[in-house]
Simulated scan of single mutants.
Amino acid sequence: MTTIDELVGEITRCRLCVESPDKTPLPHEPRPVVRLSSTARLCIAGQAPGTRVHASGIPFDDRSGDRLRDWLGVDRETFYDTSKLSIVPMGFCFPGLDAKGGDLPPRKECVRQWHDRIFPLMPQLELILVIGQYAQAYHMGKERQKSLTDTVKNWRSYFEQDRSPKILPLPHPSWRNTGWLKKNPWFEAELLPVLRRTVTELTG
């Protein structure tokens, strides 16, 4: 059976989206960004690296990461401690930019090649934070609502289920979502206190 370290090595060497892409090849050299762990009880399932993360190779090494760490109530040291926290985006490489300068969707090759191999190797996970619509589609399937807002608004119905690992849907921490946060004050008032308390329990 493949170990986590062996799988990380395979992912790091992956060139699937350049050499055998589904459609248009990745427009730059691959630089997979992922953090797997055999001990972390918490997993962050996000979207895909942006330009800054592609440059540094460090997940959430940007303003979105600053906001996410604030949501979680953790410092950078805890956030990047793979013994406490794993990070598995839906796409491991920066997918490139669309015509308007926004990030393209995560590459579908990643899910097909890697995700169903990753999570069976981390049975110790107790909670997956499912950030954004692409991660919610994979981890929640038909359980999610028609919109991201409705899915996140119904967070208790997912979080309180008797399941392992538990699922907690979140919006993307991008600063472009500042308007969404203002329109949905329940997120900060109701969800964040539970999130921070749970993260403290799982990473303490």
Rank of each mutant, 00 (worst) to 15 (best):
V34D: 13
S38L: 02
T39E: 04
T39L: 10
A40C: 10
A40K: 00
A40T: 00
C43M: 11
I44F: 01
I44T: 03
I44W: 00
G46H: 04
G46N: 02
G46I: 03
P49T: 12
P49S: 08
P49D: 10
T51H: 08
R52D: 11
A55D: 15
S56M: 08
G57Q: 07
I58W: 09
I58V: 15
D61F: 10
D61A: 10
D61Y: 12
D62P: 01
D62M: 03
R63S: 03
R67D: 01
R69M: 15
D75Q: 02
R76D: 15
R76M: 11
R76G: 05
E77W: 06
F79R: 00
Y80L: 14
Y80W: 11
T82Q: 11
T82H: 09
S83P: 02
S83N: 12
K84L: 13
L85A: 11
L85V: 15
I87S: 05
I87L: 12
I87C: 06
P89D: 15
M90I: 14
F92P: 13
F94I: 03
F94K: 04
L97H: 11
L97G: 08
K100V: 09
G101P: 11
G102L: 11
D103E: 11
P105A: 10
P105F: 01
R107F: 09
K108E: 15
E109M: 03
V111W: 10
R112D: 06
R112C: 06
Q113D: 14
W114Q: 13
H115W: 13
H115V: 09
D116F: 09
R117A: 13
R117C: 06
